[in-house]
């Protein structure tokens, strides 16, 4: 279980996180939703232990972030992490040397699934292909917690669909706890158990997607639009 309590983070005069408290239960896929600059990535980075909160705390099963919590957490960053001069196969070897939970069989399955060529240099790959490479490097670890920052942004709908399927397939096998930040709401809602909707650093809405739809009889996007319009008044 991940617990975030009263998290505050300021960048200059902008409050990126404004008293955010959440509880993430095990074995769920959670969508961190919100507009640009809502604080999604900041929250995810803080959970990954890459950013220090100004105030508040984050615990993993009651423990503060440390080397051991980081070892059970796989993080897929928004930007390119891959060294462009490496081939995919170099990057896989690099990850294997770095993380004890690297699963080479899984890496090969994902390589086949995405129809990637291990010997191809990362520099020459298209944006969609790099997104798949990044996902391969993240999912091939057997981490308990997977944090993904915008895994679908800027890629074509076909690649997006393939990536969504890879995430679901992996979740079916391992039942990890997965947090995904995304703006592609209609395309990801069928993956999600729960949503956390952020606006200007504040948590506006949280809930189980299926329950929200059932009680409000609206699409998730319409529900969020209503909450968003309400917050801007």
């Amino acid at each position: 279980m991940i617990q975030v309590s009263n998290a505050f983070k300021r960048f200059g005069n902008k409050l990126a996180l404004n008293d955010v408290s959440i509880t993430v239960e095990e074995g769920q896929i959670i969508g961190l939703l919100g507009t640009n600059g809502a604080g999604k990535s900041t929250l995810l980075k803080a959970m990954a232990g890459l950013l220090k909160l100004d105030q508040g705390s984050i615990t993993f099963d009651g423990a503060s972030p440390s080397i051991s919590t980081r070892a059970s957490t796989a993080y897929l960053p928004d930007m390119d992490i891959l060294y462009p001069w490496m081939t995919l196969s170099d990057a896989m070897k690099y990850m294997r040397g770095f993380y004890w939970d690297w699963d080479p069989d899984k890496a090969h399955r994902l390589l086949d699934y995405f129809e990637l060529t291990a010997s191809s240099p990362i520099r020459q790959a298209s944006k969609g292909t790099r997104a798949k490479m990044k996902l391969l490097l993240t999912l091939s670890r057997q981490a308990r917690y997977i944090l993904m920052d915008e895994p679908f942004s800027g890629i074509d709908p076909f690649a997006r669909q393939q990536i969504a399927q890879a995430i679901i397939d992996d979740f079916i096998e391992e039942g990890q706890t997965i947090l995904i930040t995304t703006q592609e709401i209609t395309e990801t809602e069928h993956l999600l158990d729960e949503i956390l909707f952020l606006y200007e650093g504040r948590l506006l809405l949280t809930g189980q997607v299926e329950n929200l739809k059932q009680t409000r009889n609206q699409s998730l996007l319409d529900i969020l639009k209503e909450v968003y319009d309400g917050a801007r008044l």
Binding site: G27, Q28, I29, Q161, A164, Q165, I168, D169, F171, I172, H190, L191, L192, D193, E210
Partner: peptide, 11 residues
């Protein structure tokens, strides 16, 4: 079914 529909298995 979760696999073929690409839907969260909890659903």
């Amino acid at each position: 079914l979760a696999k073929t529909l690409g839907v969260n298995p909890n659903t």
